[in-house]
Design a protein around this nucleic acid. Structure first.
Lengths: 167, 167
DNA sequence: GTGCGTGCAAAGACTTTGCACGTAC
DNA sequence: GTACGTGCAAAGTCTTTGCACGCAC
């Protein structure tokens, strides 16, 4: 359902290279609180890593099942909570979505999104300009920034967007 | 629960001045589809206009009750849907919120938000820079922008944000 | 042996829908 | 008189929680 657009991410390392340490990050987080790195938790994390960085809880569970790993709904949700606590993923609510979407974050800002309102296609990208504006706005208000969510709703070329038809 | 920050909106007309035409907009939208402008719908719209531009369905219903107007849950939700269709409000999902929040939109971009992760305080603002970046990013990708949601998560001065404590 | 983890089922929270009755055109 | 609107209650979704059993340290 969601797709990444390599074009837009060209200047940014793709998700894969940063995944290797995630296991370790997660394990450290768990250990620090006397929690255990169980097979189920490892499988959920692995499934998260197989996504393109944006996913939903039930889709993740389906993927686990497809891979022959059957983890209960409750454990999936509980593990996603732990991954949030560890800063590995962040929840994101998309317009009109009933389900919570999650993004890989791993200690840095999550990707910004461009969602096609017709096809549901999702582009992920990251823009230094967005972060710069965020910091500026927050400073103006006397706040401190922790993070942000930037979702652009629009029409992809396939859905009638594309090169703006002159009118 | 939510508050507007006048400071941040100083250069932008407050919400009030644009409300007068909303009734008309809504009525036109309803008429165009052979729907009726009923007392309940008028009351829901009035309650929406009394908000600071960001609200939840059940809070709206509570406000209606306080005002002596008792509109059923179902009608509130159904009317909010109509208001969305009319382009008067847009739904917005905030991080970790279970309820859908709505914003007054009225044919233009909704306010961007700054949410305090400690106190839940919400500042609304609008930034030309955000819109400019959005349009630029969309153009780059060959898409067409319809709208966006920009939510900054941070800490308000009261919550330990404020002038960044030197460390 | 204590305590954390899992699965299942039930509970919760928000939103939508079915239905009968009422009201506007 | 037909069609739209409302309220109530029930149904639906997604997510969380209670509980008993099992496994890790």
């Amino acid at each position: 359902m969601s797709t990444s657009n390599d074009e837009l991410m060209a200047s940014d390392p793709p998700v894969a290279p940063i995944l290797a340490p995630l296991c370790a990050v997660f394990r450290r987080h768990l250990t620090a609180q006397s929690l255990r790195y169980t097979p189920e938790r490892a499988e959920v994390l692995a499934a998260v890593m197989e996504t393109d960085g944006l996913f939903e809880a039930d889709a993740l569970r389906d993927q686990l099942r497809t891979d022959g790993k059957d983890v209960s709904k409750a454990t999936v949700y509980r593990t996603l909570r732990l991954l949030q606590d560890a800063g590995i993923i962040v929840p994101i609510m998309l317009l009109d979505a009933k389900q919570t979407h999650y993004q890989l974050a791993y200690g840095r800002d999550p990707y910004d999104l461009m969602v096609c309102m017709e096809t549901g296609q999702i582009n992920t990208f990251r823009s230094a300009a967005v972060a710069a504006i965020r910091d500026e706005l927050v400073a103006e208000a006397g706040w401190k920034a922790v993070g942000h969510r930037f979702v652009i709703y629009g029409l992809s070329p396939e859905a009638g967007g594309g090169i703006p038809a002159p009118r």
